[in-house]
Structures are given as structure tokens and as C-alpha cells.
Design a protein around this nucleic acid. Structure first.
Lengths: 210, 210
DNA sequence: GCTCACATGTAATAAGTTACATGATTTC
DNA sequence: GAAATCATGTAACTTATTACATGTGAGC
């Protein structure tokens, strides 16, 4: 299916009227954030296109105070059938890109202390995402079967990832200590993986990324 | 970190010499395929760039038979340190795009019979990927801790996804049958849903796929 | 006779991101 | 008085995909 930003907007509008700003918020923070990306630069043009094609309409709400006027979009009947049509086609394969996994693949080339920092930061990020998902589910529990399914899928996958990462942490750091240094050179091997906490002091090794 | 195709090539070359064709194969079929994408159109230019920057060298092997000459790339010392540098920067957030999940989110707009087809096809795809990963691990069990970690991560996640999908299958289809039809009803065709059975008129809407 | 695997490369095209441009109001 | 939230939109830029262009030998 052509799941471009246009179809995404159509989908969100099918659940209720919304402005470009709101759509972006839902895509960034809501349930969609886990398997979709879209920024203003793609949402606003997509909305304009939907108008042009007659798949949506706008009404301009002049805000009470001097705010910029909100443009609230609604899906049309044609919009609904265009959505149904898009949903009826075969989905493209999932695309997953992970620089973290790439780094893990080449962990032998990373300074051990820094590896621990990266690793723990990744765990924290996954935990934040899981928390966010659960908070959102508490705030507005989805009555819709689809939303429920997707949310449960996300929780399950995030939970599994977090458990895996925590379980393997020490093992990985140890395995690394044995093989490690090979690729980085001699001076690394003095640094040993301490038993207690490699996580806490990430502050020492700051990289400023390009 | 700047994990573009250039860094990817550098990483693969750090494990041994390779041609563009081989790199692409590993990215498409090997352990990398689960968290990275790259096609000829990006690999060959990236390789050319690495040469220009002195991060790799080539030797041209004239094949025995009239085949096109293989251009085997090797990483240089500068290439290794460039890789190490790239690996030392903070990883970008994971990006996951799933049209399947998008479809599940809007399952209420999909013909029930077709939904089951899509769902089962997705399960099969995940199973194929898991099989492929396990086959690859049997063929060449990774001695490298990083490769092992990444492969285990992939197996764990795929296993969880497959289990989840299988467990929820009936529940989802049933939940759908209760809510379903609501969104498909009026404008799909002139005929109104008779109210008893949402799955009924699925047959009319055939998609041609394998 | 056809398709697959090997093998390299380019050009047109798609799709979306980042940064910019603008501006009021509320919270720290 | 600095930053965040609300709010819309455009233009330059990056990045990678698709399709093309070219060619052989092996297996079905």
C-alpha cells in the first residue's frame, strides 16, 4: 500500500477532525509514533493535496485571542473510500533502522566504557517509550480493536526488548572484555569492566557529535 | 552517528574485503538485513567515495571467464579509525515503519476476509525471516560477540512477534466481527449492511496478489 | 528458450527532513 | 526575560530507490 503521509493524514482524519498541528502531535507522541514518522514539512503539503483531491475539507476557526487561525480538516466520503482502497492493498515490508544495533554489531571497535554508556542509554530510551505508551493507554484507553491491538503489540515488543537488554548486559560486557581491545589496540585492556555500575558515570566520556 | 551507507560499507569492509555485489548481498540476506537497508544505487557511489577519501582501496580481479572484473575493496588504517569515530558518536533513534501496523490500526476499514489474509501473510513473512536468521546462524555461527548479540536480539524479537500474532489471531478476528462493518458500511457500495454479518460481502472486493 | 546468479555502474525520481519565516500567550 | 506551546506554511537539501544500460554462463 502507498503508506505515505497523505494516507496517514487520511487515517487520522477518519478518526475525527484535526488540524495539521494536532496530526503531527499524534504522530510524534501518540500511538502512531512507534511505527510512523511525519513532520510539518510533509503533513501540511499532504493536507493541501487532500483538499485539492476532494478527499478532505477545511473550516477555518478564528481563535478567541490573537492566535493564528486554526484550520480544521475533515475527511469526506471520497476520502473514506480512498482510505479503504489504500488499506486494501498489500502492506510494504516493515522497515527497521537501528544505529544502536549497528553499533552493537561492531562493538569490538568501541571503547568499553563508552559501550556501557550507549547500552544503558538505549535501555532508558526503550523504557521511556514503554512508559509513554502505557501512560497514553491509561489516559485514553482505546475502545477501538485496532488501536488496542497495536498498543498491545508495542507493549509486548518493548517489554521483550527491555528484558533482553537487561538480561544480557553483564554477559555482553564480559564477552566484550575478553575479545575486546583486539580492534581498538593495546591501551584499552587496562580498563576492566567493573562489576558494580558502569552506567552511572556516563558523564566522563562526552562525545560531541558532528 | 552518521549511519549512512558509507559507514555501513566501512563496517562490512572492516570484517574482510568485499565487492559491492557482496556487500549488497550481506545487507539484503545476511544479519544486517534486519536493521539496515541499502541497494546498489547507494552502495557503489559510497564505495567510490571511500576510495576518494582514502578510507578504502581497490584491487581489480580479472575473472577467469569472460565475466565482468570484480573490484575487491579493502579498508585502510584511516578507514578503520573513521569507523571507530563514527561508532563513538551517539546512535540516532531507531526508526521503525510498518504498513502492517498501520493497517491493523485501521482494521475497522478493511474487509474481514482480506484482513485475515493480510494477517496470515504477515505471520508467514516474520517466520521466513526468523528461519533465514537461524539458517544463517547454523551456516556460519558468529564467533564475534557483537554479531552473536545482534542475532540473538533479532531471534528474540521475531519470536515474540510471531507468538503475539498467533496468540491474538482469533481474538482479533472476533473483536473485529463485533465492531466491524461500522466503517465499511454506507459508501463502499450502495447496499447497506444487513446488520447480521459483517463478513458477508467480502467476496466482491478481490485484490490480485500471490 | 528462459530465468537466475554473477557483476558494475548511472540518472531520473521520489520522499521526506531541516531550517527558516512569523507571531501571540503562558509558564518557569 | 527565556523557553515552551500553539499554529501555519515554504524552500533548500539530503538520502536513497527505481529503472536503466550491459553482458555471460549455468541450470531448468
Amino acid at each position: 500500500m502507498g503508506m505515505n503521509v497523505r494516507t496517514l493524514c487520511l487515517g487520522i482524519l477518519s478518526m475525527g477532525d484535526a488540524t495539521g498541528y494536532e496530526i503531527r502531535k499524534r504522530v510524534e507522541e501518540g500511538a502512531f509514533s512507534h511505527f510512523i514518522d511525519a513532520s510539518y514539512g510533509s503533513i501540511y503539503p499532504a493536507l493541501a493535496q487532500l483538499l485539492k483531491e476532494g478527499l478532505a475539507t477545511v473550516r477555518t476557526e478564528v481563535a478567541e485571542e490573537g492566535r493564528p487561525p486554526r484550520k480544521v480538516y475533515s475527511i469526506t466520503a471520497q476520502g473514506r473510500s480512498a482510505l479503504a482502497q489504500a488499506l486494501a492493498t498489500d502492506p510494504a515490508r516493515d522497515k527497521f533502522k537501528s544505529e544502536f544495533l549497528f553499533q552493537m554489531m561492531f562493538m569490538r571497535c568501541i571503547d568499553p566504557a563508552h559501550l556501557a554508556v550507549i547500552y544503558d542509554a538505549y535501555i532508558e530510551e526503550q523504557e521511556r517509550e514503554l512508559q509513554q505508551l502505557e501512560e497514553e493507554m491509561r489516559r485514553c484507553p482505546p475502545e477501538d480493536a485496532g488501536a488496542r491491538f497495536v498498543a498491545d503489540y508495542g507493549r509486548t515488543m518493548l517489554g521483550t526488548a527491555i528484558r533482553f537488554l537487561k538480561e544480557r548486559r553483564e554477559e555482553m560486557l564480559k564477552a566484550f572484555a575478553q575479545e575486546g581491545g583486539r580492534a581498538l589496540g593495546a591501551e584499552v585492556d587496562g580498563a576492566e569492566a567493573d562489576g558494580g555500575d558502569a552506567a552511572g558515570q556516563g558523564a566522563g566520556k562526552r562525545e560531541d557529535e558532528a
